[in-house]
Design a binder for these strands. Sequence first.
DNA 1: AAATTAAAATGTAAAATTAACCTTAAATTA
DNA 2: TAATTTAAGGTTAATTTTACATTTTAATTT
Lengths: 247, 247
Amino acid sequence: MSDVSSFFKMAFSVDCVIFGFDEGKIKILIIKRGEDPFKGFWALPGNLVYLDEDLNLSAKRVLHELTGLQNVPMQQVSTFGTVSRHPLGRVITTAYYALVKPSTLHAYASSHVEQIAWLPIDEVEELAFDHNIILESCLSKLRSAIKNRPIGFDLLPKHFTLSALQKLYEAILGTSLDKRNFRKKILSMEILEDKGVTQEGVAHRPAKLFQFDAENTKPSPKTDFYSNFNNAKKISFDHFRKSRSFS
Amino acid sequence: MSDVSSFFKMAFSVDCVIFGFDEGKIKILIIKRGEDPFKGFWALPGNLVYLDEDLNLSAKRVLHELTGLQNVPMQQVSTFGTVSRHPLGRVITTAYYALVKPSTLHAYASSHVEQIAWLPIDEVEELAFDHNIILESCLSKLRSAIKNRPIGFDLLPKHFTLSALQKLYEAILGTSLDKRNFRKKILSMEILEDKGVTQEGVAHRPAKLFQFDAENTKPSPKTDFYSNFNNAKKISFDHFRKSRSFS
DNA sequence: AAATTAAAATGTAAAATTAACCTTAAATTA
DNA sequence: TAATTTAAGGTTAATTTTACATTTTAATTT
């Protein structure tokens, strides 16, 4: 290659979509930017990648610096590279998502961040850069991931009820599921361990608590991990539905 | 952001995994590099992205420049960004795959390319850069894509027999499929148009020719597009057939 | 303490899908 | 015309999915 130096003028960034499940809703972590560009705008946590830093590690570093979150496994989703997506120059960005338990961690506004918030995904308005598009793509990835692998547990506390798990699936898939069929299917996978303990202090019959049993994560033999999203009862999730990116 | 200029020192590239189906095998297009780095090595077609060029368009441009291929839809797969994956500096690369019909197009060695070859995927040896890893990830993407969407047709000539289609699925999935069940399932999807024509000049009963009917590409209602890869026959033990692939 | 409230837990039957399996048909070649 | 080769196609059993309603258990209210 004759002269290659003119190519080495780009920057690279990572953007993180951090999903949490709280009050029956899927939320994401957004930050209000404390510096230009897009100062004062809400945005996904993201920043530039250092020259001597692996891309995948960069996502963890950036998330930590901006929100204090640590030890969060991150999944690469997609890379966005239109020419003028960033006002300061040519910046290509890679999107990552992560699933966290908002209850057990404390995200805080850190460097260059004015504010931080957990926002239900159906309440997200205009974000900085092309972050709305990035969010859509991560959401769509999450929806297909949850059908194929037992990842939902990462969004729940260590011990949880089957109803909570079902609500989580309903929130992500945007459908309502049949209770008996859901329980049958999940239990038949033998990935849940019955802790022999029940809820306390609830004003109704207390539910059994389960724990995800990582041992038994053999892939389910036939279909997707949880593919029967067909028994949807067309009830309430209208806004949710329409935001599903088909096509 | 105080001083950001030190970040704008990276380069960006795209690498293409071009799949073809030929002689019953899945092959990829590889090039022998005509310039450093890795001059003389076999590699995936790939090159640096221009500063003023959209990432996704870059993949098409690069493929065209190196192989002459044009109008090939490309799917983004994944981005690779370890620090020293490229000897000339910090270069992050995005992998794309495409499905082509080797019969109807003429790839040729173009700029900076010494040679070009279609190589069966199981005969690929050491490639330049981290291209072996990139290939693996595209292959794995192809395998899951073919189960979810009717993309196999992009690898076949316009008119094809059901046996050819089945062989294609078998080659990609690495399993053997039951002939009657395969035909039943594919035909029930109503995405194939019977051309009322048969093969000619074959030394056996000629097969009917079909054509992919893009009209009818409603997503199959329940399961994956072609998910029943479980009826794999372990070839020899025809009656001893407890051979379902568990675990 | 009895009644009310709220969610938990549970089984069965019909429908749909998947899996297993083999014989006859149509062309070419020897 | 016999031999070879691949195409074509249908039935049954097994499994999976779907639809559906009542009873149980605790806390709270009266």
